[in-house]
Simulated assay, not measured.
Amino acid sequence: MTTLVAVHGDITTEATDAIVNAANNAMRGGGGVDGAIHRAGGPEILRDCIARFPNGLATGDAGWTTAGALPARWVVHTVGPNFGAGQRDRGILESCYRRSLEVADEVGARRVSFPLISAGIYAWPRRAAITTAIDAIAGARAAVDEVRLVARDESAHREIASALVMTTSVRILQGVRELHRRGFHRLRVSPGLAPSGLYHRIVLTDAADPDGAIHYTSGAETEFAGGTVDAMSAPHDVAALILRALPRLVATHDAPEYVAWFAGLLAAVEPEHALPVSFADYFDAGAGWEIGWGSGLRYPAPPR
């Protein structure tokens, strides 16, 4: 299984199999990460770009070249969407990560280091860039052993590291949706904040067995239901942990309204991993659940 980690550092010094370059369509070098990689790697990278990409590279696509003088073996080039120029389709940004990992698999890379694609001069909002990166890498199911998200800026690194921890909550909620789709309609969710406000909590219960419950806190990081759930966990794996921890839960197919409500909740949560809150100190849930603590965005309370 591929591991995903946050790294504070300079991508041009990554001693790994492949580093990913946030290139432009011309594939002839540029500014930001692109310029730094060409400068550090030397003219051999540009010569290979000219030879391998005579017509440039399409947005969302990827391809590889030599790494020149860099400590990596290959450079995987990808062209991210320019948010500032109106290219705001998340699917294209996801394609950059997916195609880069496909190319990494083609050349046999086992360890790959990415910058945050499009989050620099292409102005993609950083939070959205981070969550897109995490979800796209997790969804790619690549053969590589390790993916590193490298940030030179300390604040960006902290935000990536925090997002990786909080993604466990998202994966748990996705595991619940997976079970709902299989007919386990009596599985209920209550997410909220610890009194300190530092930790996200989730309580899972079987509506037919109030004595059975699973408690998760982000303070436990990836520990959940006697197993491990992280950013790379698939919904069916999370579902298996839930079923093991709630052995009396059965498929009843009897609460489609709740299932539809929960699916709508996740649709609001997933784009930027804005975690839902149904309980917290001084929080009135009567107006609905909040999507992202402090956002003011409310989602209707669950049907009874």
Rank of each mutant, 00 (worst) to 15 (best):
A58F: 04
A58V: 14
T59M: 11
T59I: 09
G60Y: 01
D61N: 02
G63T: 10
G63R: 06
G63Q: 07
W64T: 08
T65P: 04
T65Y: 03
T65G: 13
T66M: 10
T66G: 14
A67S: 14
A69N: 14
A69H: 09
P71G: 11
P71L: 11
R73S: 02
R73V: 05
V75A: 05
V76E: 10
H77A: 06
H77Y: 06
T78G: 09
T78P: 06
T78D: 12
T78F: 04
V79Q: 12
G80Y: 01
G80W: 02
P81S: 07
P81Q: 10
N82W: 02
N82G: 00
N82L: 04
G86R: 07
R88P: 01
D89G: 07
D89P: 13
R90W: 01
G91F: 02
L93G: 11
E94P: 06
C96L: 06
C96M: 09
Y97E: 08
R98L: 11
R98N: 08
R98P: 00
R99A: 10
S100L: 08
S100G: 11
V103Y: 11
V103F: 13
A104G: 02
D105H: 04
E106V: 05
E106H: 12
V107T: 05
V107N: 04
V107S: 05
G108D: 06
A109D: 06
A109K: 09
R111A: 09
R111D: 04
V112T: 12
F114M: 05
P115A: 13
L116M: 10
I117Q: 12
I117H: 09
G120F: 03
G120D: 07
I121D: 13
R127C: 08
A128F: 00
A128L: 11
A128S: 13
I130D: 05
T131I: 05
T131K: 00
T132K: 09
A133G: 01
I134M: 08
D135A: 15
A136K: 12
I137P: 13
I137S: 09
A140P: 02
A140M: 09
A143F: 01
A143S: 14
V144H: 14
V147P: 00
V147D: 00
R148W: 00
L149R: 03
V150Y: 12
A151I: 04
A151P: 02
A151C: 15
A151E: 09
R152H: 07
R152M: 02
R152D: 03
D153G: 09
D153R: 15
S155A: 15
A156W: 03
H157C: 12
S162A: 15
S162Y: 07
S162G: 07
S162L: 08
A163F: 02
A163I: 08
L164K: 04
V165S: 06
V165K: 04
M166V: 00
T167P: 02
T167W: 10
T167C: 13
T167N: 15
T167V: 00
S169D: 04
S169C: 13
V170C: 03
I172F: 03
I172E: 05
L173T: 06
G175I: 05
G175C: 09
V176Y: 05
R177P: 01
H180W: 03
H180I: 01
R181C: 13
R181T: 08
F184Y: 15
R186Q: 15
R186V: 00
R188E: 12
R188I: 02
V189C: 14
V189S: 11
S190P: 01
P195Y: 00
P195D: 07
P195T: 00
S196N: 12
S196V: 04
